[in-house]
Design a protein around this nucleic acid. Structure first.
Ligand SMILES: [Zn+2]
Ligand SMILES: [Zn+2]
Ligand SMILES: [Zn+2]
Ligand SMILES: [Zn+2]
Lengths: 133, 133
DNA sequence: TATATAATGTAATAACATTACACTATTTTA
DNA sequence: TAAAATAGTGTAATGTTATTACATTATATA
């Protein structure tokens, strides 16, 4: 999903946080982001970043990568997409995968157990090509 | 996987931590576990729990649930299984799902991108049946 | 303009996890 | 068995990630 205004509330602060994320091709921790944000906004505190991230997560512009305790700008093709994110345990690189077939299979299996899968990307931890080489 | 000795190093401390986990039917945070462990072992500190957990994770007796920053005794049927874990965002209940078909599908799709999926369960966050009712 | 709502500032603290080093128990080897 | 090596645990401190509470400022609405 390309950076685009989703409505009224994409304030300068929130946009700044989002743009910082876009500059990275890997998930970034909140405190690393905070350090970067401070050069723009010396008053920034942890909660500044977390609030902006909450907003961006809500909109689906950003994903939280639980396996890394980090956040990444959504790189998917479709707005509000579902799918998988592959995470290299070694170099922390991630790739987003929008595979409706896998997604549907997972959702159906979950549904058989009375479980309704949410929209957050499903995380798959492993090793990327360059780290295996 | 039922609780069973996997070799020499399942010490009393490690067994205690594992048995505490088995008493819960949901993932438990390390500090919650620490509180419980302290009634058996007043000297226990955070690192005590984390070291025991590292050992149990290594053996595959325990899974870390990244989405909850918590740990659960493995409830799977097969030793060293792969699979999915469904996590209710509302009540934090989890269900383990050993579905080779889904697992293989995920692994193949990852492999197409040069990515080798690891053995950790794939986490699916959603809402369980009772929380939807 | 007055009021309400949304956003941000500021400070403190909570929750999760690791490092470093000392000490003890167990295993290995001489 | 004694010495040495390895594995496990104790103890203290610290690092990292995330939230709460309340004050202030900006924006929207009446
Ligand atoms: Zn995405
Ligand atoms: Zn890699
Ligand atoms: Zn399991
Ligand atoms: Zn539930």
């Amino acid at each position: 999903m390309i950076c685009e205004d989703q409505g009224a509330a994409l304030t300068p602060l929130r946009r700044e946080v989002f743009e910082l994320l876009l500059r990275h091709d890997r998930p970034v921790g909140a405190y690393e982001l905070l350090d970067e944000l401070k050069s723009l906004r010396p008053k920034a505190a942890p909660v500044t970043v977390y609030r902006a991230l909450d907003f961006l997560l809500e909109l689906g512009l950003v994903h939280k990568v639980n396996a890394l305790n980090a956040f990444s700008a959504c790189r998917g093709q479709e707005a509000d997409h579902r799918g998988l994110v592959l995470i290299c345990r070694s170099c922390k690189a991630t790739v987003e995968l929008e595979d409706h077939k896998i997604d549907n299979t997972i959702r159906r299996s979950a549904a058989e157990l009375g479980f309704e899968a949410g929209d957050e990307p499903v995380e798959v931890v492993g090793t990327c090509a360059s780290c295996r080489a």
